[in-house]
Every structure is written in structure tokens, then in C-alpha cells.
């Protein structure tokens, strides 16, 4: 028997989310079991089963950390936009170029 990880999705807009795992002899029986273990109250509209040994992950997940400054990848890097807008409008007014 194998361990299968179970993923379910609520609607068309949602991503699949992990919701647990089952022990089953094959994927077909695993699906039948997972359906009752994890969707018997209709918690999702879609169901995926993935054999655990087919899932890969980093042995050292510290690799996923962002070590140095990457603020430019995030919206907060641009939070002073209002101030900058005012400054730019001011400059345009000085030039007398706005109506």
C-alpha cells in the first residue's frame, strides 16, 4: 500500500489545496477513499490524488528564503507614490503646462 496526498478545489477560481492523505493500494481505490474522507460534505468540486513518493521538495528549505533585499518585487516598494504624484504635478504647474 502507498500513501497518497489528497488535494481538493472549491470552485473554478480556486487553486487546489492540500487537505490530507490516505493509505490505499492504488490510485483508483485511493480516489474512492479520499472522496469519502475529504469531500463527503461536498467540501470541493474537484479532487486530486498524488502518490507521496512522486512529490519532491528541497531537503533544505532555507533555500526558499529571500536572503538579500528584494523589496522591488513587492508593492510596498512603491508606497510613496502619492507624494511623488504631488511632486510631479507641482513641477508641471511650475512649467505652466497643465490646463
Amino acid at each position: 500500500m502507498d500513501v497518497y496526498e489528497v488535494f481538493r478545489r472549491g470552485g473554478h477560481k480556486e487553486p487546489f489545496e492540500h487537505c490530507g492523505s490516505v493509505i490505499a493500494p492504488d490510485s483508483e481505490m485511493g480516489l474512492l477513499m479520499a472522496k469519502e474522507c475529504f469531500l463527503r460534505r461536498r467540501e470541493g468540486e474537484h479532487l486530486w490524488l498524488v502518490r507521496r513518493t512522486d512529490i519532491h521538495s528541497f531537503k533544505d528549505e532555507s533555500l526558499l528564503e529571500i536572503a538579500a533585499d528584494k523589496s522591488y518585487r513587492f508593492a510596498h516598494a512603491y508606497r510613496d507614490v502619492v507624494k511623488k504624484r504631488d511632486k510631479a504635478r507641482e513641477r508641471a504647474r511650475e512649467l505652466g503646462e497643465t490646463g
Binding site: 522591488y72 518585487r73 513587492f74 508593492a75 512603491y78 507614490v81 511623488k84 504624484r85 511632486k87 510631479a88 507641482e90 513641477r91 508641471a92 512649467l95
Partner: peptide
């Protein structure tokens, strides 16, 4: 894309409030 928009506007605003050459 929302983020790109801010990024693009940020660059624009620096040019708009900068030197004549930047404008």
C-alpha cells in the same frame, strides 16, 4: 501587472518631476 503599473508610474513620476531632459 498591478505591481508593474506602480513600477511604471514610479519611473514616469521621476521623469515628470525631474530635469527638462528627463521630462
Amino acid at each position: 501587472e498591478q505591481l508593474h503599473l506602480r513600477h511604471g508610474e514610479d519611473i514616469t513620476l521621476e521623469l515628470a518631476s525631474g530635469t527638462d531632459a528627463q521630462r
